[in-house]
């Protein structure tokens, strides 16, 4: 495993920890999009079906279980926890996220590495992950005051995606037979979606003012 991949996985892990910290200790999910969290739960459930068929490493299995368990428990907290759910910005979080799922499924049926159930689900999870952040970005834009933890959560997620792109470039040049077009294209699309957020985040950091996205 190269340094970019490890750093990418760690920023992903930290992003989840930041979100769990906000939910568990502050008992708040203000500014967090339930729509995005539901999409992530679906992304990991459909991608990690190979937990039952392929063993890669202990690291791989543990990380998969962490991302599965955390994404499902975050959705549960936001929907059902009696304190946390009250802080959910339901009226602002109106993105019709299920509309993203059908085109992703159709695309997965058309473009996959092999036409089998697991491979179609794998491609679907990649297409869906590419757009899963959209409800969160829309919610951020609508929220007047973005708190630090929410800003850091999205920053860490974006960093994770950018590091994975570096990991692919590194692997392409150092490994033979390492080609994953579906992962690359959907991953690059996903990373580009964060570009705008990055821009405003670093502007606010540089000028030492609170993060606010233009309406």
């Amino acid at each position: 495993m190269n340094i970019f991949r490890l750093a990418g996985d760690m920023t992903h892990l930290f992003s989840v920890l930041v979100l769990l910290l906000k939910i568990h200790t502050i008992k708040s999910c203000a500014g967090i999009s339930l729509k995005t969290q539901e999409l992530y739960a679906i992304v990991f459930t459909t991608r990690y079906l190979d937990l039952f068929t392929t063993y890669i490493s202990l690291y791989n299995t543990i990380m998969k279980l962490i991302f599965l368990g955390s994404s499902i428990s975050i959705v549960w907290y936001m929907r059902h926890h009696k304190v946390v759910r009250r802080s959910y910005d339901k009226d602002q979080d109106t993105f019709r996220h299920y509309l993203l799922m059908l085109p992703c499924l159709l695309l997965a049926l058309l473009i996959n590495e092999k036409f089998t159930f697991l491979e179609v689900m794998w491609a679907f999870s990649l297409y869906l992950e590419a757009v899963a952040i959209l409800p969160q970005l829309v919610l951020l834009q609508r929220t007047r005051n973005i708190d630090n933890l929410t800003g850091q959560y999205v920053l860490l997620l974006g960093a994770y995606r950018a590091l994975y792109v570096l990991n692919w470039i590194y692997r392409y040049f150092t490994e033979e037979n390492y080609v994953h077009w579906i992962t690359w294209v959907s991953g690059i699309v996903q990373t580009l979606l964060y570009a705008d957020f990055f821009y405003y985040y670093f502007q606010s950091w540089k000028n030492n003012v609170k993060l606010q996205l233009p309406a």
């Binding site: 991949r5 890669i56 490493s57 990380m63 991302f67």
Partner: peptide, 10 residues
């Protein structure tokens, strides 16, 4: 084929 590389990423 090249496309059948192992899916070892998360």
């Amino acid at each position: 084929t090249k496309d059948s590389a192992v899916k070892d990423e998360l």
